Amino acid sequence: MVRLFLGCFFRRTDVNTVTNWNVPLVWEGTFDPALIDDMYKKMDPRVAVVVFAVGKYTRFLKNFLDSGEKHFLIDFRVTYYIFTDNEKDVPKIELGKGRNITIITVPSAMRWQDVVLGRMKWATIIIDKQIRDEADYLFMMDVDSVFHNRFGAESLSQLSAVLHRGYYKNTDRDRFPYERRPESKAYIPAGEGDYYYTAAVWGGYMEDMYRLVRYCYEQSEEDAKNKIEAVWQEESHLNRYLLYNKPTKVLSPEYLWSDYDQVPSDIKVVRISQLVKNYAEVRPNGGN
Rank of each mutant, 00 (worst) to 15 (best):
Y40N: 08
L238W: 07
D114Y: 07
Y57F: 10
Q274Y: 00
A135W: 02
G152E: 00
E134M: 08
F147K: 02
G96Q: 06
A153E: 04
G166I: 03
Q130D: 11
V116A: 12
Y241C: 07
G203Y: 02
A53K: 01
K249D: 07
K225R: 15
V269H: 08
L256N: 14
F176S: 13
D32C: 15
R173N: 14
L25R: 10
T13C: 10
D114K: 05
R12M: 06
T30Q: 09
N239Y: 12
E28N: 14
E183V: 13
K185L: 10
V282T: 09
Q262C: 05
F147Y: 12
I272P: 05
A186Q: 06
S184Y: 07
E221L: 13
F176L: 14
Y196P: 03
F31A: 11
D44P: 03
H237I: 07
K56M: 07
H237K: 08
Y215A: 10
M141K: 06
R77F: 01
V270M: 06
K42E: 14
D142F: 04
M43K: 14
M140Q: 13
D75M: 04
I125E: 15
G166A: 12
S258R: 09
Y81I: 04
S160M: 00
R180Y: 10
V269M: 14
T30G: 09
K70W: 01
R111L: 14
V276Q: 12
D133A: 08
D14G: 00
V263I: 15
D208C: 06
L242F: 11
F64Q: 04
S108Q: 05
E218I: 00
T84I: 02
